[in-house]
Design a protein around this nucleic acid. Structure first.
Length: 398
DNA sequence: AATCCACTGGAAGTGATGGATG
DNA sequence: CATCCATCACTTCCAGTGGATT
């Protein structure tokens, strides 16, 4: 590095191409590791689309960070460009159902991403009935596309599957005539299929794939493949194997592995280090945890935080207990509300708030049955270290 | 077997918010 | 403009639940 005093002309000493480490980044094929088999099978399933025929509907299973979305997106984008060579107008839409949990929101994003300037159809964000979104979607597809691939990521987060129904029946119901639709569903719960509607199940699950978790060697390769995000020689030798080992232990989640690598680089940046030594990896993992956590908390309402605070207070004062009853938490929660000068919410609502926290893996719930006149009840327990929760909670007051 | 009872969770509803539409 | 539409954050009501006690 030059030792010039110019504040702003300095080059980033750590990263050259940081986008390689963003989760949304779609790598080239030679950077996708250990998924050759899956990719070719997937390509095979949607292949008819190239000639304007109906692609098979596909359901992909696999734990988080096993490359499901990555492969689906990759295959879809390849398909679109190959189809173009054949003179077929294909398009694909990606919906993250964790973001768009209702039928309406999901159709909205599909319609929005399938929309083209030529179509000149206005897709508002909200304020319109679900039926209208469908109508406009069919109109766009019919008039401007031959084939549409719709990727529904985290499909198990959808509140109801009527959208799947609509999509799979669109052709038969005569809603669209000149466009074929293929659906790629992605779920991390194998059980998801069981709770699906019988009719949807038969049409949606023409092909099924299961993506196994990555092992440490593959994680190693994945990170190796993306290591040119860093400047030459910045990462010390042990870093990648160490991060791979950590991530492999936590269920082979490649996303987490890459996150760790990025955080390690950021730590180096903020401490003005020239290289990334191995022990940054451990720090990076902790930071990834607390970051995720404070992200979750900052998005929640004050009362949601008070509830969590109540549970934290209990955990700190009474350490040997393994869980706390809803009513006990509610009592503490009422105290907190009094201190904050806020009206307490109903018990019913607090139960739902606790359930939401459980859903986000912030706390864990367990059902118990008590003795006489005790009935059945739920106990709640913090999953993170109470001290950490307390800190994050305090940082988030505003 | 009936009763108890703290606790659970589904259902329906309310009123406010923000936006589209004819 | 009035009318529709979805959604949020929350409430009220109420039919279970399940093991000990009667």
């Amino acid at each position: 590095m030059s030792d010039s005093d110019d504040l702003f002309i300095r080059e980033d000493p750590i990263f050259v191409n940081k986008e390689l480490l963003e989760i949304s980044h779609l790598p080239d094929e030679d950077r996708i590791v250990g998924r050759d088999e899956e990719i070719s099978q997937l390509a095979n399933a949607v292949n008819p689309a190239i000639f304007g025929q109906s692609p098979s509907n596909v359901l992909i299973y696999g734990k988080t960070g096993t490359g499901k979305s990555l492969c689906a997106k990759y295959v879809s984008s390849q398909l679109v460009s190959t189809a173009e060579d054949e003179g077929v107008d294909a398009i694909f839409a990606y919906v993250d159902c964790a973001q768009d949990t209702t039928e309406t929101q999901a159709v909205q994003t599909i319609a929005d991403s399938v929309n083209t300037p030529e179509a000149d159809i206005y897709i508002p964000d909200k304020g319109i009935s679900t039926a209208t979104y469908y109508k406009r979607l069919w109109r766009i597809l019919d008039a401007h596309h031959d084939v549409a691939l719709i990727i529904l990521d985290e499909i198990d987060k959808l509140e109801d599957d009527s959208i799947l129904m609509q999509l799979s029946r669109a052709g038969e119901a005569g809603k669209i005539e000149d466009c074929k639709i293929g659906v790629i569903g992605i779920s991390n719960k194998i059980k998801y299929k069981d709770r699906m509607d019988e009719r949807v199940k038969s049409s949606l699950c023409e092909r099924e794939f299961v993506f196994p978790p990555y092992d440490a060697t593959q994680l190693n390769e994945i990170m190796e493949a993306r290591s040119d995000a860093f400047r030459d020689g910045v990462i010390e030798d042990g870093v990648i194997p160490r991060a791979a080992a950590l991530a492999a232990r936590e269920h082979g989640d490649a996303r987490k592995a890459i996150d760790i690598l990025r955080y390690a680089g950021e730590i180096a940046q903020s401490t003005n280090a020239d290289t990334v030594p191995e022990d940054f990896v451990v720090q990076a993992r902790e930071r990834a945890e607390t970051d995720r956590f404070s992200e979750l908390i900052s998005g929640s309402t004050p009362h949601s935080r008070y509830v969590l605070q109540a549970l934290t207070v209990l955990s700190l004062n009474d350490e040997d207990a393994t869980g706390y009853r809803t009513t006990r938490i509610y009592d503490v929660y009422e105290d907190i509300c009094r201190q904050e000068g806020a009206d307490a919410l109903s018990l019913r609502r607090v139960r739902d708030l606790l359930k939401e926290h459980a859903f986000l893996d912030v706390i864990e719930q367990s059902r118990h049955s008590g003795g006489s006149a005790e009935g059945s009840y739920t106990e709640h327990e913090l999953l993170e270290d109470p001290e950490v929760v307390k800190e994050v909670l305090e940082d988030n007051i505003e």
